[in-house]
Design a protein around this nucleic acid. Structure first.
Length: 311
DNA sequence: GTTGCCGCGGAGGTCCTTCA
DNA sequence: TGAAGGACCTCCGCGGCAAC
């Protein structure tokens, strides 16, 4: 028997006759005419090479073959029905799912704890995987489904991607508390002449950051580059280095007592943090639920409640 | 790759008859 | 009484093809 010859509706008819032990009753159950069900049964008989049901005084009695395939067919139909309805709706209370989120290390420290608490409260069988990829790999990860959501300032994600603003942040400078030349504020001359720590951010490239923060034609001297924000405090202590970071990153540093922050010497545009997803998951119920949770948690987020937990 | 058109085959419906 | 099946009709899905 070739699976291509099987019409799923024939299995539905078989299941209905198995339940009712009657062609007429099966027709009533399925909303079809009695001859229709009879025709369907006939096609099934030809496909299976078996009469499947024989008439007796008490109704249609299944043959041994019909009895042997009844349970697998019933389970298969249930599975198909469940699978189709699962894609259309998502019940967080009962759903088993794993979501992969792309976010920076600081996102994992600052944003993830609140998200985990919320997800565990609403969806006990849902797991989260937080990971960080090179900037150029974010798009492909979302496009192929290796990741469900990305959080950050990922301005390079445009065609085929959707975004939703979560909160705004601003850049600040951080230096060692005993910095030899920078006191309570930093001048533009001091900022440009200083030796900088560069963060290899998955969001904005260094060129984009320079364009945002510095007057045209000016550049910073970066003497050390690190891939994680959390590496910055150790590099700053006892040195004359300076790092430019979003203010919420500063709040996430556990040991801030040996550091001080100063405002930028120029008026820099706000850093807009969004959640990003690919159009493939635009209408997926599970993905919509996750985006709703993230939006609910971090829209106009101050971050204070999270920082309070960490200090 | 998508869309629209056309022809064909098959499934479903009704009506009716036959049979167990 | 209810299942099976024949005759006939309608409708719909699918494949092939062309155009974009």
């Amino acid at each position: 028997m070739n699976i291509r010859d099987i019409d799923l509706n024939l299995l539905v008819v078989f299941d209905a006759i198995m339940q009712t032990r009657s062609v007429t009753a099966a027709a009533g159950q399925l909303g079809r005419a009695q001859p229709t069900i009879s025709h369907s049964l006939n096609r099934l008989r030809l496909l299976c090479g078996d009469t499947l049901f024989v008439r007796t005084r008490t109704g249609l009695e299944p043959t041994p073959l019909a009895k042997s395939i009844a349970l697998p067919i019933s389970e298969a139909l249930t599975l198909v029905q469940k699978s189709l309805s699962m894609s259309a709706q998502f019940d967080p209370k009962t759903a088993h799912a794993t979501f992969t989120l792309l976010m920076s290390d600081i996102g994992q420290v600052g944003l993830l704890p609140a998200l985990v608490r919320r997800v565990r409260a609403e969806a006990p069988n849902v797991s989260l995987v937080a990971t960080q990829l090179p900037r150029e790999a974010y798009g492909e990860a979302l496009e192929t489904g290796r990741a469900d959501l990305a959080i950050g300032a990922l301005r390079h994600l445009t065609n085929g991607f959707y975004q939703q603003r979560l909160f705004d942040d601003e850049y600040v400078c951080v230096v060692s508390k005993d910095h030899p030349t920078i006191g309570d504020h930093v001048t533009l001359k001091q900022y440009i002449n200083a030796d900088h720590v560069g963060i290899i951010s998955p969001g904005l490239s260094e060129i984009e950051i320079e364009r945002l923060l510095l007057p045209p034609g000016r550049s910073r001297r970066i003497v050390v580059r690190v891939p994680h924000y959390l590496a910055a405090p150790a590099l700053l202590k006892g040195t004359d280095l300076i790092v430019t970071i979003p203010s919420k990153v500063l709040q996430s540093f556990r040991s801030r007592d040996q550091l001080k922050f100063v405002h930028l010497p120029i008026e820099a545009p706000k850093l807009r943090v969004h959640q990003y997803w690919h159009e493939r998951s635009l209408n997926e119920a599970a993905a919509k639920w996750l985006r709703g949770i993230v939006m609910d948690l971090f829209a106009d987020w101050s971050g204070d409640e999270l920082i309070a937990d960490m200090i």
